[in-house]
């Protein structure tokens, strides 16, 4: 009885301490994480989000293809990679699958005004002011018609993050050279290999949805990913950062089961030996 009382004191002290340094301290330090906004409700745009794909293709070739390629439809960019890096310090993305991973309303607002949509005044792409609201709709319709459906987490991550971020543990390297990124963004974007461990997943989701909500002042542009794409990216980052989770959870049960038996055995032996000691 007396020993149980001591144990109880010990447990209470440990639990209070643990509560203080883990859940409580983290709630004070990080505060509330803002909820992601997948409607991109701050963006007001009159541009259409759908239209005629055939017209869209013409508009694409005339307005976009000087910088952007579209492999799915056999369109090569007008400038090669090195020329693009030299002029923008970043590789313009191939737009084959962009409509599958980005929110279309965001995409419409983005085409009209990339700096506003990405919340990054230095964003490399100029506003496409020459396009009418309907034109934008046609282009989005075209992009949707060529985009591959059901991309997996890895593919989306490479599409969405791979121009600037490396994931070197997966042998994925940023498309744009580090020194150009530094010139473009002010610093080299961090490697994402263990990002799933370095940040809470909830935070990552909010951050990807809108970097300014996670790290105010960051030079990372808002990407405008859909909810599904964001979740797939987060799940992928989580999985590559902790590849042995399943093995760990399973082995843990075995080890604890083993020790429970050990407790039984040692308890029986202790009782036997202490039978005559009072």
């Amino acid at each position: 009885m007396k020993e149980l009382k001591i144990l109880l004191i010990l447990v209470v002290v440990v639990l209070v301490g643990y509560w203080g340094i883990e859940p409580y301290a983290h709630s004070v330090m990080h505060g509330e994480v803002k909820k992601p906004d997948y409607n991109y409700s701050d963006l007001k745009t009159t541009a259409a989000t759908t239209g005629d794909p055939a017209k869209g293709k013409e508009l694409f070739v005339a307005n976009c293809a000087s910088c952007h390629g579209l492999k799915n439809d056999g369109i090569n960019p007008g400038m090669d990679k090195n020329a693009a890096i030299a002029s923008f310090n970043v590789v313009p993305p191939d737009l084959s699958n962009i409509a599958a991973i980005l929110d279309h309303k965001f995409l419409a607002a983005f085409i009209k005004n990339p700096q506003q949509a990405t919340e990054n005044p230095k964003f490399a792409m100029p506003p496409m002011a020459q396009l009418s609201d309907e034109d934008v709709g046609h282009i989005i319709a075209y992009l949707s018609s060529v985009a591959k459906k059901n991309l997996d987490g890895k593919e989306i991550t490479i599409e969405a993050c791979g121009r600037c971020h490396s994931i070197k543990y997966q042998k994925i390297y940023a498309e744009t050279p580090a020194e150009n990124l530094k010139a473009y963004l002010g610093k080299v974007p961090p490697d994402l290999s263990v990002m799933g461990k370095a940040k809470e997943l909830e935070y990552l989701e909010t951050f990807i949805n809108n970097p300014q909500n996670g790290l105010p002042g960051t030079s990372m542009p808002r990407l405008g990913l859909t909810k599904e794409s964001t979740e797939k990216v987060v799940a992928y980052l989580d999985q590559i950062a902790d590849p042995h989770r399943e093995q760990r959870n399973k082995l843990g049960m075995w080890v604890i089961g083993y020790l429970v038996v050990m407790v039984g055995l040692t308890f029986a032996w202790k009782k036997k030996i202490w039978k005559n000691i009072h």
Partner: peptide, 20 residues
């Protein structure tokens, strides 16, 4: 003998752990 049996059982179980 009872005490020894428990001791041996404990030792054997510990050996399983060490083996793992």
């Amino acid at each position: 003998s009872r005490r020894d049996f428990l001791l041996y059982a404990m030792g054997a179980w510990a050996a399983v752990g060490v083996g793992s």
